[in-house]
Nucleic acid binder design. Structure first.
Length: 483
RNA sequence: GGCGGCGUAGCCAAGUGGUAAGGCAGAGGUCUGCAAAACCUCUAUUCAUCGGUUCAAAUCCGAUCGCCGCCUCCA
């Protein structure tokens, strides 16, 4: 089955066919680095990370470009507030962004251009637009004349007259038309500036993306992504200025992720209802957040709450618990027979072999990670049952298949069970030594043997108070740190 | 006001023409001295409401109600 993606431009799922067979040029709008990132940023980058992973898994050679907007009004404002250079703000929050991305397990893009590195490219593009009559300069500012671009509004499905009547924008008197947007802004005193044919100034917001995509991916490229809130005006403007300049289609597939909401309202700085990635990662393992983000289809809104995160934690913990369980049975594995012992085991083996195909089917349908994770849960249950039945070889095979798929396509299960459960760190934080725990387990076993169950339960209770959970199994008692 | 989208079990969430995945929570069971974990079974005659098209609709069409987003910076 071919890969189908929902294209905002057509409003439909379309079969994905890249310009050049086997190759994909993809651009996703990155952050404006003026503050730390919140969960909304985490979703956007994680969604496109998974899309890139899946495209690569499917055999495409993907050039993934994600920009950093390192000059902007908000960066300047923040710099003024802190009385530091704008570049210091940009550098600080670029680093913060990289830290967050790395923690979340998002792969770095192939190319990560910064707006300020593309000033000459922007100048060239703006000049072309002026030459072609799509842009005009007034007192050091350059504006794009939206009315000159006939198909304006195609992506966001609105027409120019409606935009004006519904506009809440203060009309800038220097613009010829209220819809026109700035390509180049003259600098006010004290603001950072670059020389340009129109005087000292800095780039408008939209032009950087056009300059960076053209340089790195060509005038026409395959996929352009971003949050739904960028459809208008940002992406609409990118299309207008790019296609006006080149006369060619800009991006062929437009992919947009839905919002993270809180109480069903958009998470946003301006509403003050946001959680930063770093805040969340203080409480939850990064893969809990990643798992949470991927259990809903990327175009739908996803509501953030403690309950939802705890559900996600329970979910991914099930996977790691099973992995741990399988890994600990490795001694039995050595003596295990490779031959299926039952009809169930034979079926399980076949299901594991077919699992990647089912996951691919789900992912081919507009990257349905929610469905894919559902299949992984099915497989997980089978692994546990094989474990119960002592079918070590097939169980181990299933564990491998589940972990591999999760890792390669979803970027999950990249930790070891020990690492995920934070066992080492948690052990270090305990107020009781491992030897002492072992001694108490032995003592309890002795109590159990002599049927002194009250004493046995007391020992288990006192360990629980210290954060140790005991679990009796057929091979004796194991312990773990309470999570 | 214009445009776009959503409404599926107690909660979360797939499914967009062929008779409701999965997870959490809950109930019962297996195992256990008891727990825990794991497994098994059960939990929506029904997909906001009302009409229509069709042999067949959660899925398509129309209307109504409710919610959200964009139209200003925003992932």
């Amino acid at each position: 089955m071919p890969l189908r993606v929902y294209n905002t431009m057509s409003g439909e799922k379309e079969v994905f066919k890249p310009i050049e067979e086997g190759k994909v040029g993809m651009y996703a709008c990155g952050p404006t680095v003026y503050d730390v990132c919140h969960i909304g940023h985490a979703r956007a980058t994680t969604v496109f990370d998974v899309i890139v992973r899946y495209l690569r898994y499917s055999g495409f050679d993907v050039t993934y470009v994600r920009n950093i907007t390192d000059i902007d009004d908000k960066i300047i404002k923040k710099a003024n507030e802190e009385k530091v250079l704008w570049s210091e703000i940009a550098e600080r929050f670029t680093k913060e962004f990289w830290e967050d991305m790395s923690a979340l397990g998002n792969l770095p893009p192939s190319i990560e251009p910064k707006a300020t590195e593309y000033i000459p490219n922007m100048h060239k593009l703006i000049q072309t637009l002026i030459d072609k009559g799509f842009a005009y300069a007034i007192e050091g500012d350059v504006y794009f004349a939206v009315r000159k671009f006939a198909s304006y509004g195609r992506l966001s499905k609105r027409n120019m007259d409606e935009l004006i009547s519904g506009s809440r924008v203060e009309v800038d008197e220097r613009k010829k038309d209220p819809l026109d947007f700035a390509l180049w802004k003259s600098s006010k005193p004290g603001e950072p500036w670059w020389d340009s044919p129109w005087g000292k100034g800095r780039p408008g917001w939209h032009i950087e993306c056009s300059a960076m995509t053209m340089k790195n991916l060509g005038q026409t490229f395959d996929i352009h992504g971003g949050g739904k809130d960028l459809i208008f005006p940002h992406h609409e403007n990118e299309i207008a200025q790019s296609e006006a300049a080149t006369g060619k289609t800009f991006a062929r597939y437009w992919l947009h992720n839905g919002f993270v909401t809180i109480n069903h309202e958009k998470m946003a700085k301006s509403l003050g209802n946001f959680f930063t990635i770093k805040e969340v990662l203080k409480v939850y393992h990064p893969e809990v957040l990643r798992f949470f983000l991927l259990t809903t289809h990327y175009r739908n809104p996803i509501d953030y709450s403690d309950a939802a995160l705890n559900d996600a934690k329970t979910g991914i913990t099930k996977f790691y618990s099973t992995f741990k369980r399988v890994d600990e049975a490795s001694s039995e594995l050595n003596s295990a027979t490779r031959n299926p012992q039952s009809e169930f085991e034979r079926e399980a083996f076949e299901n594991f072999k077919g699992l990647s195909g089912k996951i691919e089917e789900a992912m081919d349908d507009d990257f349905n990670t929610a469905l894919a994770i559902g299949y992984l849960f099915d497989a997980l249950k089978t692994v546990n049952r094989l474990c119960d039945d002592g079918c070590y070889f097939t169980m181990s095979y299933g564990r491998g298949v589940v972990a591999e798929i999760g890792k390669n396509i979803l970027g999950l299960f990249t930790a070891t069970p020990e690492g995920f459960f934070g066992t080492e760190a948690a052990k270090a934080a305990l107020e009781i030594s491992e030897d002492e725990i072992k001694r108490m387990i032995d003592e309890r076993a002795e109590a159990k043997r002599s049927k002194e169950f009250k004493r046995a339960d007391d020992i288990r209770g006192s360990l629980l108070k210290k954060g140790i959970i005991l679990e009796d199994g057929p091979k004796g008692t194991t312990w773990k740190v309470k999570g």
